[in-house]
Design a binder for these strands. Structure first.
Lengths: 123, 123
DNA sequence: AAACGTAGTATACAAAAAGAAACCTAAGGT
DNA sequence: ACCTTAGGTTTCTTTTTGTATACTACGTTT
């Protein structure tokens, strides 16, 4: 129970509506400041962005560099440790791509994956 | 945007408070009936168990075999396709185990991972 | 003196997910 | 006639997540 099922722990880090896209941005763009992330992810609110970044920071995936200036400047980047996630992230992504293909074969192209999470299965 | 970030799709399948533990059970025990799963996962409600199983079934990860008897008998198992997830699941689990270790190094043994998801970061 | 820009917080509210508990079905046993 | 069983479904409540909007701090620019 303790050493099994730790993949829940792994999941925790990736879960949260915005973490995947934040990580994607940081992995591909390198260092970004808060406002750049906001622009890159138009629909995210400040609150969510802050919250998700703090969680990633706690897990040592993201580094937060504060410049004591006015107006403030804060830069975010993937930590060295965080870069170690690239492999699984890639694997997960690859599997996801293949899976969408699989679902297409099963149900045809006109289906919505999202519509089949949780509730939403009622007519 | 379309072919990247499909790891969100992958995540959807694993996410949901109970999916990891359900998958774990089915992977290690093979075929199980509804009531066996309930016993194996004491805190889950029927509602949640049904819901999560249906989602896994939709994604072709879990197979549902109905025996038309009274009282009913329904057996669940991992599909052939679903077995293909074993590798990533294992990878995710291994990474999770290592990550817990990493967090221990950073914060010491007496910390709660759960307490650092989402909110809960207030004193 | 007022406005601007950045990286947030605070507060209030809406929506989604999860939990609890009761109800349903139909055959077989008492 | 009623109870039991297995595998659910329904309804209702609570908890968790996410959104929207306002406000702050403080030097610089207008």
């Amino acid at each position: 129970m303790s050493t099994f099922c730790k993949f829940e722990t792994a999941l925790e880090i990736l879960v949260g509506k915005w973490k995947p896209v934040i990580l994607l941005r940081l992995f591909s763009n390198g260092t970004m400041r808060f406002s750049e992330l906001q622009k890159a992810i138009p629909d995210i609110t400040k609150k969510m962005l802050t919250q998700q970044l703090r969680e990633l920071e706690y897990h040592d995936i993201v580094h937060r560099e504060i410049y004591r200036q006015i107006p403030p400047k804060v830069e975010y980047s993937i930590t060295e440790y965080g870069k170690g996630m690239a492999t699984i992230l890639q694997a997960l992504n690859d599997w996801g791509v293949a899976h969408v293909e699989h679902l297409n074969e099963l149900y045809g192209t006109n289906h919505s994956v999202e519509a089949h999470r949780s509730d939403a299965m009622d007519k």
